[in-house]
Design a protein around this nucleic acid. Structure first.
Lengths: 160, 160
DNA sequence: CTCTACAACTTGAACGTTCAAGTCATTCCC
DNA sequence: GGGAATGACTTGAACGTTCAAGTTGTAGAG
């Protein structure tokens, strides 16, 4: 808010250009990736993330709260999403026998099949729009930049 | 399974790390900026973009279709948004007298006041989360990277 | 052992976006 | 000049996310 140095009220020309480019990226890339998943798999990017995290977990099982964090979403959002995924038969939920407060989500066999069918197309889209247009060096730069920005947001609000 | 040619099926470790960092950025930065605008100005980021574009236009006036493109949204989305902004008294719409197919949106005096009150806080948030955590060099890199990725998306779908 | 506090969900309503029509004005072509 | 084609919106319903309760389960204090 008030770093010691100078904080002009507006952005200079270079900053403005970078900012507009970033806004376009923030709008277009998510919508392009969402569009591919909706078109080819009738699934949301967030739903994909949920299924993907489960498919990578031990026993294809995870607590809802851990899953929410890994998939970058609120618990409420995950709960609604889980309801939908359950209706489609891709996951199931059960109370954690070791602690009744937790709910454990499990990827079903059908859900795993869905992932196997969906992942290659999605990875291809990511590759096409992110890794193909960039040099190896730019990919490293991007990772560093993204981590820096997210770090700044985390230190502002809940770092958890 | 992979290594066949230039397109392996999965991402290697560096790519995976970069990809996860990017996804986090794509989720967290928009929501952080939206949150600031909602909290301090009861306005959406898209609504802000619309008002900002109008405030920068000649005569604070623009065709809906041009506005939709500059604000990176569909015409339908802009139309709904315009209805809301009109109800709040920040813009007005009128048929283009030179061509009845177009609709011209104009920022009202009250809308300009809103912008003047809202912009500094939003710019501060952008500065805090984007420019402060990055070096000048990283800002340049980010702009180049964003343009590359958006270019790839544009060349795939509608370049317009 | 009960009472309070808290954490992990779940739910329903409100909100914004998308999608698929639908309306209206202009242009093109015969 | 009439009729199809095109482009610029607008509208309403469906969908997903957020926000504000509400429920349930456990731990901790007394």
């Amino acid at each position: 808010m008030h770093q010691g140095g100078q904080e002009p009220d507006w952005l200079d020309e270079d900053e403005m250009q970078a900012w507009m480019a970033l806004v376009r990226l923030l709008v277009r890339l998510p919508s392009a990736l969402d569009a591919q998943l909706r078109r080819d798999a009738s699934i949301t990017h967030f739903e994909y993330q949920v299924l993907a995290q489960l498919s990578m977990a031990e026993g294809h099982t995870m607590r809802m709260s851990d899953l929410a964090q890994l998939a970058d979403g609120s618990l409420s959002r995950l709960s609604h999403t889980a309801t939908r995924l359950e209706k489609r038969g891709w996951i199931s939920r059960a109370t954690d026998p070791e602690d009744g407060r937790y709910t454990i989500a499990t990827l079903t066999k059908s859900g795993m099949t869905k992932m196997v069918a969906t992942a290659p197309g999605h990875v291809a889209a990511v590759r096409e729009h992110v890794f193909e247009p960039l040099t190896t060096r730019q990919v490293q730069q991007l990772a560093a930049i993204a981590n820096r920005i997210v770090g700044s947001i985390d230190s502002d609000t809940g770092p958890a």
